[in-house]
């Protein structure tokens, strides 16, 4: 593997939704790539740790936003907060934190000035060691927001770790969807690998996530998981990639060994799942080696 030049290169692996084998693929990449840092940016429902079994070295609290805290003894129930809040989150000084957007308008508007905004501990992020090298990951508290901000924190820390250790790659396990956390996991990366499956919904989600990559001008490659469960749909994905000029870097067959590996907390490379392990190896070579 080449020496790290100026800054490490970054690859994000995404799928548009979960359940397409993204974590299986990312874990295999973790094993195959030397001299890298892993970043689990699926902070909302992190799974990678189940296979990589990190030992936490450093844990840092994450403050995503601020919560309004009302001094109810001083509150005169004037109703101004209720009137100004656009999220229907406050009623005479009583805050519904699930509805609250943490915008602080109530605090500014309160004529008695009895609403204070206080930092909310909404999760933690970690720097860990795994059997495949360093990993940065996070846990977002239940029902917390700002996962985009937490993704950015994880990536920033991964970059630090990579630079310190002169590592040449950062491999990012991306979140599902096309919204804020996904955008945060794609910003400024060198390339994105989209893993999809040959189902109509898989194709639909792949198309959306590819348009997001195009929107941000990030070169994208595609691989198809369980390609043999539906050959006609696989051909449709192939045709789509061809038409859009997107490189199809490989196809992974369906094999029950993938689930067994997962249940045992192993990568498919470690358990050497027949056909699957070689297919992923080939994909890895096409993505990482130029």
């Amino acid at each position: 593997m080449a020496e790290a030049k100026t800054s490490p290169r970054q690859l994000t692996i995404i799928s548009g939704k979960g359940g397409t084998g993204k974590t299986t693929l990312t874990a295999a990449f973790a094993q195959l790539t030397e001299n890298k840092v892993m970043a689990d940016c699926d902070v909302d429902a992190a799974d990678l740790h189940l296979i990589l079994e990190p030992t936490i070295k450093k844990s840092v609290p994450f403050y995503g936003g601020r919560n309004p805290v009302v001094d109810l003894d001083a509150c005169t129930k004037c109703g101004v907060c209720t009137e100004v809040c656009r999220f229907g989150a406050i009623h005479d000084g009583v805050v519904d934190l699930f509805a609250c957007d943490h915008c602080a308008l109530c605090a500014h508007a309160c004529p008695e000035q009895v609403i204070k905004m206080e930092d909310a501990h909404s999760g933690d992020w970690f720097v860990s060691e795994t059997r495949f090298g360093p990993m940065v990951h996070a846990r977002l508290g239940i029902a917390e927001e700002n996962s985009g901000k937490l993704v950015t924190m994880v990536r920033k820390e991964a970059m630090e770790v990579a630079k310190k250790g002169s590592r040449s790659w950062i491999i990012i396990d991306g979140p599902p969807g096309v919204g804020c956390p996904v955008t945060a996991s794609l910003a400024g990366v060198d390339k994105v690998l989209v893993i999809t499956e040959p189902t109509l919904s898989g194709i639909h989600d792949m198309e959306r996530v590819l348009s997001l990559a195009t929107h941000f001008n990030i070169p994208a490659q595609v691989c198809i998981n369980k390609f043999d469960i539906h050959l006609a749909n696989t051909r449709q994905i192939e045709a789509y990639c061809l038409e859009k000029g997107i490189e199809l870097v490989g196809k992974i067959p369906f094999h029950r060994g993938v689930i067994e590996a997962m249940v045992n907390g192993k990568t498919v490379i470690e358990t050497d799942v027949p056909e699957v392990a070689p297919a992923i190896h080939q994909i890895w070579e096409r993505v990482m080696g130029e």
């Binding site: 909302d44 699930f98 979140p175 969807g177 956390p181 997962m262 249940v263 907390g265």
Partner: peptide
């Protein structure tokens, strides 16, 4: 509902009378 546990999920679950959680029998 969308996947996950953050705001979009909260917004979707909020106000419902019952939630069915669909899962699969793996550690994930």
């Amino acid at each position: 509902a969308p996947p996950g546990t953050s705001c979009p999920v909260i917004e979707s679950v909020e106000g419902s009378d019952y939630t069915i959680l669909v899962t699969e029998p793996t550690p994930f």
